[in-house]
Amino acid sequence: MTTPTHVLASPHRSPRWLRHSLVLARRSLAKTSRNPGTVVNGVVTPALFLVLFLSLFGNALAGATSDYLQYLFPGILVMGAGLTGLVSTGTNINIDLKNGVTDRFRSLPISRLAPLLGSVLADIVRYLAAVAILYLIGTALGFRSDGGLAPALAAIGLAVLFGFCLSWITVFLGVALKSAEAVLAFSFLTFLPLQLGTSLATPAAGLPGWLQAWVTLNPVTAAMDACRALLNGTPAGDSITTTLIWCAAIFLVFCPLAVSAYGRRE
């Protein structure tokens, strides 16, 4: 067997799958600039929750609106860094799969991971844009990060990492299910309890028993608690570790599932 000549002595140092993913992420981002819906959606929904909860509970819960803003805002950032966009990530992948371009990608000598990772990486950039805009809104409303710059960046990083890992659930649904409608319905059902039963508006401790049990278990609560602790400079307890464990677990289960479903899809 001779070595195929087309395996070019590549001058690149990065692994091929990562390079290909970045090329495909750029393709996806080029479309965003023309159709900024994902970013707008990632900003508007969390911003609405921010204003809604702030006016509803601002005085009742914390005594002062500014104190409540310090509690509420980190959870809003976690929403913006992925939670809001989850349904559209899977739906978009599903729609893209029916497009002739996907057939072309699948007939190229590139890793099966690359098109999926490229799509998720592009979403990360969109989430970051949404987070940046949300941060400006929060600051305008009076939010101040008491923990300093490095913990604030760590909080944003953790929120985006969490969004990245959670994305693989919807990517898997997007690849495994036939129609975009099914993806929409399944994603909605999967993420509704994750999105609603959280410590976003009030601490888990103050909730009734059954709800408290779920909210405590919900990985989104861990992520929100961790971001809150980092941004406010309060003790994080084991929330950061719990978030990282959830991130790893979700990613390690759903990424291989999604890639294998993509390879088998006919």
């Binding site: 070019l8 590549s10 001058p11 690149h12 091929r16 390079r19 290909h20 090329v23 495909l24 750029r26 393709r27 080029a30 479309k31 023309r34 159709n35 497009n99 002739g100 371009v101 057939d103 072309r104 990608f105 190229l108 000598p109 590139i110 690359a114």
Partner: peptide
Amino acid sequence: GQHASVDEEIDGRANLIMIGRLLDLP
């Protein structure tokens, strides 16, 4: 493909470069 399998949202040259990059051309 049966239906033109090029990316409509980007320009023609970008389509060609994208495929070239995926084929490991510098």
